[in-house]
Each structure stands twice: as structure tokens, then as C-alpha cells.
Nucleic acid binder design. Sequence first.
DNA 1: TAATGGTAGGGGAGGAAAGTAAGCGCGTAT
DNA 2: TAGTGATACGCGCTTACATTCCTCCCCTAC
Length: 961
Amino acid sequence: MDKRKTYSNGAGGASKRFRGEDEDTPMSTFEEELALLESEESELIASEDSLQPAPESQEVDARWSRPALPPLDPAADDITFQQMETDYYLGYPLPGMPGAQTGLIPIMRMFGVTSEGHSVCCHVHGFAPYLFVPVPEFFKPEWCATFQRVLNTAMMRETKSVTEVPQAVLDVELVKRQSMYGYQGAGPVPFLRITVAQPRLVAAAKRMLERGEVVVEQLGGWQYRAYESNVDFEIRFMIDTNVVGCNWITLPAGSWRRRAVDPSGGPQPVSLSQLEVDVAWNKFISHPPEGEWQKVAPIRILSFDIECSNRKGIFPEPEKDAVIQIANMVINQGDKDPFIRNIFTLKSCAPVVGSDVRSYEDEGVLLRDWADFIRQVDPDIITGYNINNFDLPYLINRAKALKVATFPFLGRIRGRRTEVKTTVLQSKQMGKRESNTINTEGRTQFDLIMFLRREYKLRSYSLNAVSFHFLQEQKEDVHHNMISTLQEGDAHTRRRLAVYCLKDAYLPLKLIDKLMCVINYMEMARVTGVPMSFLLTRGQQIKVVSQLLRKARQQGLVMPVYENKGGDTGESFEGATVIEPRKGYYDVPIATLDFSSLYPSIMMAHNLCYTSLLEPKDIDKYGLKPDQYIKTPSGNLFVKPSLRPGLLPEILRELLAARKKAKGDLKKETDPLRKQVLDGRQLALKISANSVYGFTGATVGKLPCLEISQSVTAFGRMMIEKTKEEVEKRYNIANGYKHDAKVIYGDTDSVMVRFGVSTVKDAMELGNEAAAFVSGKFVNPIKLEFEKVYFPYLLINKKRYAGLYFTRPEIHDKMDCKGIETVRRDNCPLLGNLINVCLQKLLIERDPDGAVDHAKQVISDLLCNRIDISQLVISKELTKTDADYSAKQAHVQLANKMKKRDPGNAPKLGDRVPYDPIYVLENSVPIDCQYYLENQLSKPLLRIFEPILGENKAESILLSE
DNA sequence: TAATGGTAGGGGAGGAAAGTAAGCGCGTAT
DNA sequence: TAGTGATACGCGCTTACATTCCTCCCCTAC
């Protein structure tokens, strides 16, 4: 890309750049600046006559660039970098590299950063896609050539559309493998490993083989079945080369060639990375993320936010409405503050202390320069708030409308146009959600709203609400119909807008730091082996698949391709037990015993896995004796580890052992950044272990196995039942204890026990003892642990309770509420707060009268219209498209109504629909207090007061007025 | 097209279904 | 003695209304 030297533009008149008056005095921080702005209408605004034309800004450009690359000698220097993104492209073979030498072939590409902060693009050559098919025992090695010829001929005929493939089937090799699905008896059996020229040919080969279109004489009518033909090519590469997401790679001296613009005729650089190299796929070293290789490179994270002009009441449309500001913040991962803070503004803007203001008269030039800025700064991660669904598509479409030819090249590959494609991702966990795919090769997009939607359940996902929730920082929203007014004012009003825009670019960085988003996802990528970008764009299954395939490969096992039956098969299995609660208010300590990692430990204890699953008919086939296999409570058969230790149990053991180690290291570690990394790691390991069970039960998935999942839950049901029995059988007066213990409730892996004792300390002692006692009744590594004591404890219903939570006898840790209105997002905040306060008064202060008074007060406030309207907003999520709803839903109707009023701002699929927004105020719709009292407040209030006060007294609260 | 972790369960909303009381017409006894 | 009208009452039917049940939907627990 051409070096841009100045921000003055030729087309639309000279652009101006403003500076603060006193360059030499230390500048206030951004926060102070914002605080100042909020407190008064700032003194910092320069008066018109102090405005100066922009000086040439060479020194600023230098600050944007990465540190200069030292000279490198391919013969003597290693290159080591943290790989951040791995993808592939189709290109022509490089002479001297392994693999196919003609045609268009896939070439892998790893983008990364060295520990000095240099960006690297590494082309990896010679790795080709493949699949397996089992063949009969009598298959002779010399038949491979025939097989290859026949298959190749058939594929060449069929796949004419695939251009520049001189040979579709590159290789056929006879190997020994074993299917991972079902116990297969003794040894490995013959498979063909079929290597093809391009990733898309894998599916074609599978189709032809399974359809019986490939006839090899010696095999007759052999029915082919494909294995591992559905593995993503990037994942395939990473598995086979032991690369995991975000790990460190070393290219040893002598193995790599640098691409440089020189006349020698070698391959030319195609990327914007500082260092671009070629290497053979089997020549680089991939470091497992352990020890020193847990470190993190100084990754550049760019956060940006845009503001658009808009016409009254109409959501901005890129074809018509201008981009008026773009704020940018760039930080090195691990640093405290951004080292670049700037804002591109349309028309003049008074200076903002601490930030670089760049003003333009011509919007097209602004966009052109912003794209140049991106390429100059060369960020590894691009973040922001809702950039995937708004900012990025808007900029791209706006640039298209203004015909800014150089704009849509935001990735690291020269000449690769950045485009927007909409996709729908649907999962049971997330519901249906639309998102855009925007290619920025080599730069990972990390839209914070997507992260938050996945990782946190919140009432509202507006940046404002999120900032308040996590940072206790409110950003004063500029209402969207104010934007144009501010823009059409003068340099000072535009400055106001700029300050908000800058803050919106800054908040995502603060949130990333506070929530450790990048670190945690990096660790998740390392643990599960997938690229970091998959964590936001793909589902849960790919992570398990990646781990499973890696483990399977070590043992010569291959994964079959499971064909999803079309439509809903309705297949399901029985889940966990929820013990019928003995509802009521307990003014005695209740001890809680939990199985730690219940499902993983069941799978480990009983060797439940694909590889150990035994078909009843196979008992005779393999001549198994009854002591060689087990029958699970759901009636499924699994062989014991002595015959074949399962893959899943092994994966789980490693995950849990690694977690234990990470937690141990975490305790010893003193460096705050490394502490964060370790904490992220242990969390990733825990989540990974827990998702293995879900994977086996995912009927629309890569490899469901209900025998495993239903056995797991059946064992779980048995165990919780047995725990209840054992505790009650032992802890009673007949056995010399002072009281009869009673299990009052339990869910899946926990039991709540009333031992009858009156102090927390006594309950803890008995809890510990009972946990150890019951653990002894189960197979290793199943362990029941004493976790906490609730005192007092209000048990309202299944999955609904509240209590004071004690982990030590002296003082409670917190008030714990489960399932009740305080933790639900579909009530108005008024109710949540009211219940919360009442519970605090009841449980902590032990002041029922105070609680009643408070409730009465709130009800009377409500009836007298003294409640802030924001407290009455109810929100619900739009989980499916309008047509998919079969029943009438209030929030769906509301969403449709909002769409008619203002199509741009209306809630979309996956958004939460807030009822009664500002609309109510503006249109002075009367608030139906009676509705709120009757439909929102009364029942929940009765539910918490009744067990404590009795029915009559509880009801009287509502009649107070 | 490709891709999509699980089940249990509370509770609200709304509609269908079954229940019930009121209203009415009709027949009949007085 | 037979016929007539007024009245009360039982019965079945219709209608309006309250209740229950069921399903959908959201969201949570684990």
C-alpha cells in the first residue's frame, strides 16, 4: 500500500487538524477529560481563532507502525511467533516444497506476532486433505494404484467444474486403523487413506464411493463408508501438525524462506505483515502451550466506533447517510492504556485532550484514510461493540456508495476485497441468530457484543447497560436524533459527539481487560485446539471434535461420518433427577453436598466412550466374559478399561489433571498477567470437561451416541438416590446421632441435608463427614464433596430457593438466590429489586416486619405512580423469526409494532425486546399500575412471604391500601 | 448449504375445553 | 264437569362466564 504522508486531501478542500494549546504541560487522562466534560461545559475547547492548520504528521505515522524488523538470516535465525489465525487459500505450488507440484492446491497460512511485536505471515506448503474408507482384509497393497486410477477417473469426469485440478486423487495408501465407534475387538483393520487435491474434493470422493460409482474389480460390490471426510481442513491441518489455537510456532533456521520484493524472481509478498515466509508443513515446530510457551505476544487490539448522520426518525442507511466520525483506540494486550487514541471527523472538530483529532471535509477521503490507518496500524484483533452487525458492514457499504476504491481491503492480504455475507447460526443454546461474515484475513474480529451474548446472561446488551453492569460506568447516551444536530452545529458541538464516540471505542477495551475476554478465549483455543475465531463464530461441538480427533489420531482410531437424518427425529433421553422438595422456610442450617464434576467422573469411572460401547450381539462375537464388560443402569453395555480404555475418559482425565495443575500454579503465581492467563486456563478446562457429555447427547451433531449420554444420566440418577438413602440411613438417632437427618431437596448432583443441628459449625462438620462417608460408597474418581451450608433456607419449589450461603462458620459469604425472580431477566427490575430487598430483610436481618413494610411501601409507591419508569420495563428475547411463532406473544407483537414505527431501531432476531420504552413517556401512555401489581408483583411476593408468615398474613400485604 | 452441546422444570400467557350458573322457553301441575 | 288463566316448578337448551387444562414460550438449574 502506498505510504500516506499527509491528511490534507486534494478533492474536497484542505482538512484541518486541531491541537490543544499547551503541548508541553502533561495532558490529562481520557477519564479526567470525560469527567471534566460531564461536570461542566468544558473550558478545554479552543476558541475559533486558536485553531491552526494541521501540521504534517510524519511522527504520528511512525507511532502507528510496528517496531522495525531487524535483519534476518534464513540460514542462522529461527523465527518464533504466536500464531493467532490459521486459514488456507488455493494457490500454485512453490518449487522445492512437498506435495502436489501442479494445479491449484490448498496452502495453509498462519498469521501471528513475535514476542517483539512483529507481525508474521507464514505460508505452509504441502499439506493435502484426505479421508479414510475401510476395505476388506484381503485388500492387497498393490491394488492401491488401481483404486486410485479408477477413483481419479470417476472424479475427474464428475468434477469438471473444479478448475485447474490435473489430478483429483493424489494418493491412496493402505493403512491400519480402527473405527472409534463401538468396541471393535482386537486389532486394527485395513483402511485406505485417500489424499485428494483440494478440500472440496473430499466430500465429492465420499459421495462417489458411497454411491457405489467407483467399481474396483477385486472388491466386487464392497460397500464403502467414509471416515473423517467431514473434518474442516484448517482443523485437519492443526491436528496433524499438533498446532492448537494461539500457540507458539518456531520455524528453525534453514527451514524457511523469506518473501521480499527483490528481483531474484522468488515468490512476492502478498500480505501486509512485516515478515512473510514460506515453510514446508512438516518442517516447523509447534510448541505445546505449557511452561514458558504459555506466554502471550504483544498483540495489537484495535477498537473502533462510528457515528452516522441520520434523517429524523430513520435509521441510518449507508446509501444515503454519511459516516461522520470514526473513533479508534489501539492497545497492546497486557498494557494498561491504549497507545493510539484518535478520531476521524467529518468537518472540523475542537481538540480533545489526549486524543488525536483528524478532520476532513470530504467523507470519501475520510474513509480512504481510515482504511489506510487500519493497514498501517496492522492490528491482530479488531474489536468494538456490535461491529459485526453494524459498524463494519456500514463502513463497507458506505465506501461502496461513495466509490472509495481502496477502502474494502481491511485484511492482511493485498488485493483481497473485504466483503459482507450474512449467515444464520442456530443452536439450542443460543437460539437463532443472524450475523455477518466479514473477511479480514489475518485479523481476528472480536465483536464484544457477541462475546457477551455467549458468556453472560444479561437483561440488556446495550453498551450502556453492559458498561454499567461490569464497570459501574455509565455512558451518557447521545440520543440518535441528536447526532445530526450536533454534527450540523460547529466544531464544539462536533467535539461533544467526538467525546462520546471515543468513549464508545474505549469501553470495549476496558471490558476486554476487566472480563479478560481475550486471555480467556486464547486459553480456550489452546485447550481445545481450535482457532480463536471459531470460539465466537462456531458452536460448542467443534471444540470437542478437535480434542477427540487429536486423541484418536494418537491411537490409530478414526471417526466415522454420522449422517444426520433430515428433520426432527424427536430422539431424546432421560435426564437427571430432581428430588421432590420439602418446601418451606428452614430456620436451621442446611448442608449441601455436591458431586464434583459429576458427569465427567461418571464417564471416567465406568469407561463410557465410543470406543468401549458394546453391542449386545457382539458379546458372543468377541467371546466376552461377564467380568469384561458392564451393564449401565440404562441397559447399555461398555467394555472395561482392561479391554479398551476409552478416549473420552482419557480426554477428561487430562483436562481435569491440567485444571488441577493450573489451579495449583495460580496459587503460586504472583505476576498479575500470568495469573489471569492461568485463571482463564482453569476455567477453559472446566468448561471443556463439562461439554463432552453434551456432545455425546447432541442428536443433531457430528457424532451423537445416546448410549453414552443416557448411561451417564442413568448413573447420575442412581447416585443421587443412593446418596439420599445413605445419608438418611446413617445419620439418625438410632445410630447414636442427636437427630434424624433428612434430605429436603436435591438436583442432579447435589443434595440438601437437614442434619437437625442448630449451628452452622455443627452442620459443616457433619457435612464433611457425610461427604467422605458417601464418597467411599462410589467408584473412583467419583467424589461427593461438602460445599456449603444454607442458613436460613427458603425452599420455594424445584429449582427455586434462596438462602444465606456459608462456607465458614463465622460469617455468611453471600445471599444465594436460585431460579427466583431476582435472577430472572424477564421481570421488571422493580420486582427483582423488591424481592431482593425483602429476602435480605427476611434472611439476613431476620426482620419480617421490615420486609412487609418495605413491600407495602413499594406497592403504595406503585399505585401512586411514584415509581421510575425504567423500573417497570419488562424485556423478553426474540428467539425465533416471526413466522416460526405458533402462539401469540406479546413481545413479538410489540417487536412488529416497533418495526412499523422505526424499522432500523426495531429489535431483530436474538435481540431482547424491552416493553414500555421511552415511547410511553413521549406519548404519555398511562401506566397500568393495577396490571403490575396483579400480574407482576403479587404472586412472587406471596411465594416468599407465605412460608414465613403464613397464608393469611402474606395476603394481607397486598390489600394494604 | 453448513452448521447447530444436554434434560428438568417453574411459571406466565393465552387459548381450548370442560364446567357452571343464569336465562329462557316449554310443558305441566296446581 | 270441563275449560280457562295464573302461577310455580321442573326440565332441557342456550348463552355467558369463570375455571381448568394444555401448550407455547422464556428462562433458569444443573
